[in-house]
Simulated scan of single mutants.
Amino acid sequence: MLHTNSTLTIAIIDDHPIVIEGLQKILIRDLPIQEIQEYHLGGDFITYLKNTDKKIDLVLLDITLPDISGVELCREIKNISTETYVLGFSNHNDRSLVMQMLAHGASGFVVKNASASELITCITEALNGQITFSEEIQKIIAKPSASQLKSIPPLTKREKQILQMISDGKTSPEMADELQLSLFTIETHRRNLMQKFEAKNTALLIKAAIQLHLI
């Protein structure tokens, strides 16, 4: 847990000096800061992190940097220092980007137009081990993704059976033999499944079925 008498070392990685300057003022005013480090390139911070014993409590990480993507940088930071919390900090509010950051170990995501109080709340929650988002990101996360909105196509009992067999890696001749159906019938079912799921190949068919929790 974060205590009020704790002192924090925070790194800001952003290629806009004016953004870093503004963040420093907010952090020093509202948090018990020991040190604020600033980096304009992700590679510079990785080099530092690999060669220091100093604990970096939290990184405010811009997603668009000149030398490396924020998503990849987040992954590298967490690989080197699992105890360092990472907050995505960006003008971009794309849902898939936020989810990629979380998948690579980020503790949350804050848009740059968030208020100072939102930022401090998110930092505090991250330092306390929570997953946290600024208000705008909370609304985006709450919206279902396109795959979640996609309706489940109506399938016959036989189509469900064949879909499962396809996901198990069975070939059309194997399915025809097991189900005692003609190869033509199996191929017809496969073609119908492709059309219903709007899939161009078997891999995309299986992916769509998994997203809809059908297999």
Results as ranks from 00 to 15, higher is better:
Val19Lys: 01
Gly169Asn: 01
Thr82Phe: 15
Asn5Cys: 05
Thr52Ala: 02
Pro154Trp: 14
Pro153Val: 01
Ile120Gly: 03
Tyr48Trp: 12
Gly129Tyr: 11
Ile215Val: 15
Arg95Tyr: 09
Gly70Trp: 07
Phe184Asn: 09
Ala199Trp: 06
Ser151Gln: 13
Met1Gly: 10
Asn93Lys: 00
Gln24Arg: 15
Gly108Gln: 04
Glu159Asp: 08
Leu214Asp: 07
Val86Met: 11
Ala208Ile: 03
Ser69Val: 06
His40Asp: 00
Arg191Met: 08
Gln164Lys: 13
Ile10Tyr: 06
Ala103Met: 08
Ile18Gln: 11
Ile141Lys: 04
Leu49Phe: 07
Asn5Ala: 12
Asp15Glu: 04
His189Arg: 03
Lys170Gln: 14
Ile120Met: 08
Ser147Trp: 12
Leu102Thr: 01
Ser134Gly: 09
Ala199Pro: 03
Thr156Tyr: 02
Gln195Gly: 04
Leu163Cys: 03
Ile152Trp: 01
Gln211Ser: 09
Ile215Ser: 05
Lys160His: 13
Phe89Cys: 09
Ile137Tyr: 08
Leu49Arg: 00
Asn51Pro: 05
Pro173Met: 11
Asn51Thr: 09
Pro17Ala: 14
Ala106Met: 05
Ile26Arg: 01
Ser182Phe: 09
Arg158Lys: 11
Leu23His: 07
Leu61Ala: 02
Pro66Trp: 11
Gln148Ser: 05
Met101Lys: 05
Leu87Thr: 03
Gln130Glu: 14
Thr9His: 07
Lys112Asn: 01
Ile80Gln: 13
Thr202Trp: 10
Leu102Lys: 06
Phe109Ser: 05
Gln24Tyr: 10
Ile68Leu: 03
Ile140Pro: 08
Pro154Val: 15
Met99Pro: 03
Ser115Leu: 04
Ile137Pro: 09
Ser6Gly: 01
Leu155Lys: 00
Lys55Pro: 10
Leu97Val: 13
Ser167His: 09
Leu102Val: 07
Leu65Gly: 07
Glu76Tyr: 14
Thr7Ile: 12
Ile12Trp: 10
Gln138Val: 06
Tyr85Glu: 15
Ile140Glu: 08
Ile10Val: 13
Asp44Lys: 08
Val59Gln: 05
Lys54Cys: 00
Leu65Pro: 04
Phe109His: 06
His16Arg: 03
Leu149Pro: 03
Leu31Asp: 02
Pro17Ile: 14
Ile77Asp: 05
Ile206Gly: 01
Leu58Cys: 02
Val59Trp: 13
Leu49Glu: 11
Arg158Gln: 12
Phe109Arg: 01
Gln138Trp: 02
Lys112Phe: 14
Arg75Gly: 15
Leu205Gly: 00
Ile20Glu: 10
Ile26Tyr: 09
Val19Pro: 07
Lys160Tyr: 08
Val98Gln: 02
Gln164Asp: 15
Leu58Gln: 06
Ser147Val: 14
Lys143Leu: 15
Asp177Leu: 14
Pro153Phe: 01
Ala176Ile: 11
Asp44Val: 12
Lys160Asp: 04
Asn51Phe: 08
Asp62Gly: 05
Leu27Asp: 08
Arg190Val: 07
Glu76Thr: 09
Glu35Met: 07
Phe197Arg: 00
Lys139Leu: 15
Ile137Asn: 05
Phe197His: 01
Ile12Met: 13
Leu155Cys: 02
Ser172Met: 12
Gln34Pro: 03
Ser90Trp: 02
Ser107Trp: 01
Leu60Phe: 09
Leu163Glu: 02
Asn113Val: 15
Glu83Gly: 11
Glu21Leu: 12
Ile10Arg: 04
Phe89Lys: 07
Pro32Asp: 08
Gly70Asn: 00
